[in-house]
């Protein structure tokens, strides 16, 4: 009985999954990666249609790449955050990791190191801070919320300390090219963001590690009893999140050609919002990289559209809040329907 009702509850999802797994090639992968993102994908398309009708220039190709470019910082950090949230964790420190690692890279380049070393400094520092988060939660058993909240504060404080509160600017071209170069007439940032999402998608859905991430978020104790190295995997997701934040820092710093002590303030909340809008459950076990991509694009498109329509900036924030609320509401209603069916 329960099985039949359950299957009937979400026929669309079931079909989408079966349809997706049958197809091969780019189209098949695209279809699979967007599985389960139905409502949010529809919402994004609807938003695009509305904006195309009311906003001049919205449909232009350059505008679309602009949306992705503007979403790159949030998007790349959101890839790492998706891993963390699927394990039922949270990483509040990404904003301050972006600021600190960007600042460290900027200062070391001021000190004369070449651009690629500056990039490595940001990535390495991000990875290290992420590893600290992971180590503290898994081996000392401190709640992720608290650990990353503390690191948020430490990171922001360190950023101010090492920069003496000053903006650092003027970097070698071997660094700034990240934010300015184009490949096939499209900004490198677009390619980079899509590449990070593609890697995130493959790791999450195709690797042993990815399967373990879902299992831990779904039921930690069951995963442990099934022989999954729960600690190692939980540790790694925070390290990944830190690494992604480091890459976000490279993107932000190179685009602005400067490192601000107050950079990326509150970024973590936008990142978490994008992941949650994309259908990843804060309770863990459910979510997808495709969903996060759509969530990031939705926020980016919204910002872009409201700007095109000359909406005052404070309304932008309000509308963002409404979208987050609606996304979580849809998730909660789905959940309730499922638990009734089960």
């Amino acid at each position: 009985m329960a099985e039949k009702r359950a299957a009937g509850a979400e026929p669309g999802k079931e079909q989408a999954q079966q349809g997706g797994s049958g197809r091969r090639g780019i189209g098949g992968i695209l279809a699979r990666s967007l599985t389960g993102t139905g409502p949010i994908l529809a919402a994004w398309i609807l938003l695009c249609v509305v904006l195309a009708l009311v906003a001049p220039n919205f449909l232009e190709f350059d505008n679309f790449t602009q949306i992705v470019v503007q979403s790159a910082v949030i998007g790349i950090a959101a890839v790492g955050m998706t891993f963390v949230i699927i394990t039922a964790g949270i990483d509040l420190s990404v904003g301050s990791i972006v600021a600190l690692t960007g600042m460290l890279a900027a200062i070391s380049m001021q000190g004369g190191v070449p651009g690629f070393v500056g990039i490595l400094v940001a990535l390495g520092a991000g990875l290290l801070i992420g590893a600290f988060n992971g180590f503290s939660t898994t081996y000392f058993g401190i709640t992720p919320f608290i650990v990353t909240l503390a690191v948020l504060s430490m990171g922001r404080g360190l950023t101010l300390a090492v920069s003496s509160g000053q903006t650092v600017f003027g970097f070698p071209a071997s660094f700034t090219f990240v934010g300015q170069a184009e490949i096939l007439g499209v900004s490198l940032l677009v390619w980079l963001t899509l590449a990070v999402f593609a890697i995130g998608y493959f790791v999450l859905s195709r690797t042993v590690f990815g399967h373990q991430v879902y299992a831990i978020g779904g039921n930690r104790e069951a995963a442990r009893l099934a022989g999954i190295p729960v600690r190692r995997v939980s540790f790694l997701v925070y390290a990944i999140s830190g690494l992604c934040a480091g890459l976000s820092a490279v993107v932000l710093t190179s685009r602005l050609n400067s490192a601000l002590p107050s950079a990326a303030e509150g970024l973590e909340l936008q990142v978490i919002a994008a992941v949650v809008i994309g259908g990843t459950s804060l309770f863990g076990g459910r979510g997808s990289m495709g969903g996060t991509l759509v969530g990031v694009l939705l926020i980016g498109t919204l910002n872009n559209g409201l700007t095109l329509l000359n909406v005052p900036p404070f309304w932008v924030q309000f509308v963002q809040g409404v979208v987050i609320f609606l996304a979580v509401l849809v998730d909660a209603l789905n959940r309730r329907r499922e638990s009734r069916a089960g």
Partner: peptide, 28 residues
Amino acid sequence: TEGIIHSASINENMILSVLDRISRAGFV
């Protein structure tokens, strides 16, 4: 609380302990 991963599929639940056997170089 200790057996089933509710949010995961039946397939996923059944292969959880043998992921290494159905993967190559970490890829499932």
